[in-house]
Each structure stands twice: as C-alpha cells, then as structure tokens.
Amino acid sequence: MPSVSATERFISTSDGELFVKSWTPVSGIKPATTAPVVLFHDSLGSVELWRDFPELLARSLGRQVIAYDRPGFGRSYARADALESDFIISEATGPFTAILDELGIKGFIAFGHSVGGAMAAVCAATFPDRCVALITEAAQAFVEDLTVKGIRDAEQVFAQDGQIDRLRKYHGEKADWVLRAWTGTWLSENFQHWTLNETLSRVSCPVLAIHGENDEFGTAAHPELYTSLPAGPCVLELLNECGHVPHREKPDVVVRLVSDFVDEYLVPVALGDQTNH
C-alpha cells in the first residue's frame, strides 16, 4: 500500500479560522479527478480524535482524505453562542462550503460519524452533482429514546471530577462549550422532533451505513432509514460486538467495508481538476 503524507492548514472565514488536515497517498493514488473523502466528526469530536483512521483510509482507498474541526471544536475558532436547532442543516452551506471553495474540491465522498453522519447526508443532498457517495457510521436520523438516555448518562459521567479534562485534551478552553453544545441541544425540547427523513429522500448517490449492534446512542432503526430513503444503491452493515465508534473499535473492518463499497459502487467520474492541498 502507498505511504501517506499529512498536511495541516487553516482556512479563513468571516467568523474565524477552520483547522483542516489532509492525508494524501504519496504513490499509487488514483487520478487527480478522483473525489477525496471528507470526514465529519461527532458531537464531541475533532480532527485529532480520528487518530490514525484517516491515514488507514487514505492508504487503503488510494484517495486523499480530508478532516476538519467544526467551529467551536478542536483547533478551529471558539464559539460562545448556543447551537441553533438547524445546526446540522446549516453545516452544508457554512463551514463545509468554505472548505470546498478554498480547497477547490469538485467532487467528494462524504463520510460522517454520529451527528457527523447526519451532516454528511445533508451535504450529499445539498450538492447532489458533487457528492459521489455517502458513508455514515453510527449516525442518527432522529431523536430516539436510546439516544436521549445515552446522552443523559454521558452528561452524568462528565459531571464527575476531572472528567471534563478528557475533552480539554482535544478542545482546550473550548471543552465546556463543546459539552454544553452536545447535551444542551440534543436534550432540549425544541430538538426532540428533529428527523433527517426529508434530507435522506433527496440523497441520490450510493450510500453505505455502518452501525454497531451495541451502539449506546441508537438502534438499527437509524441505518435502516439511511439505506431505505435515498434513491441510489444502499448498503447496510451491522457490526457484531461493536458500539458507537466502529472506526476505533473495529478499524480494519470499517476500512475493508469502505474499500469494498467504493470498489463496487463508484466508477471513475470526470470531476475536473482537483486542487486540494
């Protein structure tokens, strides 16, 4: 497999700088017209929390993999405001569009974990001519009782002495905001009726939905929606003895599933010159 080169940069927006990291195969990469994979992290996540998964994915696929910290997370600019109830929808036309424009990305594979999976789906629906595939992992499509229970349980854990330090390692002084943004939004009354049904009905590219059978934040009802509502070909993979973070719990399995899916459902597409950095 090819070796991988990693690069970091900041992208300026009207609100502040977004941190972006790219993993590019040094040799054996597909043609420049091959769409890169863009990773969308979870509610407590960051670029760094993907750990070595992006490198494994880039090496296996022979494609560039790009990850970024959303506003308020990781090394991107800090926020003090509360998340609006449409924060999942607005990601596509906000930070993600800024990254597409700055990096000159003509086409992409959207890969999202947890709430990042919902954001990836929104991006697939918003850019149907540019998103060549949607891959979700432990993604939510609605607010389920199990989701609420999992968040309440996590909220109690983080209330214990020293637990917030786990987030500070990745988010620094933004850690308290990150935790409030997650629990405050998902547990709010205004958010309880949120669903992704309308968005998923507008997804037309191939879809791979990966979900752990022991996911503490959602049942198999979520990936079933991700693979029943879109118009294109869909694949659902339920992983045995796996919880909410398949790419950390079973990285080799996830990489293999993604590679097999891409090989089977994606054909070379002329996307113009990719000028990713």
Rank of each mutant, 00 (worst) to 15 (best):
L200V: 03
S201H: 11
S201W: 10
R202M: 04
R202K: 15
V203A: 01
C205W: 04
P206S: 01
V207S: 04
L208V: 02
A209N: 02
A209G: 03
H211D: 00
H211R: 14
G212Y: 05
N214V: 07
N214K: 15
D215M: 03
D215A: 08
D215Q: 10
F217S: 00
G218K: 06
T219Q: 05
T219I: 00
T219V: 04
A220C: 08
P223Q: 09
P223N: 06
L225A: 13
L225V: 09
Y226N: 04
T227Q: 07
S228Y: 04
L229Y: 11
P230H: 11
G232W: 00
P233E: 04
P233S: 07
C234N: 12
E237D: 04
E237W: 01
E241M: 08
C242Y: 14
G243D: 06
G243F: 08
G243Y: 01
H244I: 02
V245Q: 09
V245T: 14
V245E: 12
R248M: 11
E249G: 14
K250H: 14
V253A: 11
V253M: 11
V254C: 15
V254I: 12
V255R: 13
R256L: 11
R256W: 12
V258A: 09
D260Q: 13
D260Y: 06
V262K: 03
V262F: 12
E264Y: 08
Y265V: 10
L266W: 01
L266K: 02
V267I: 09
V269H: 15
A270M: 10
G272M: 04
Q274C: 04
Q274Y: 07
T275K: 13
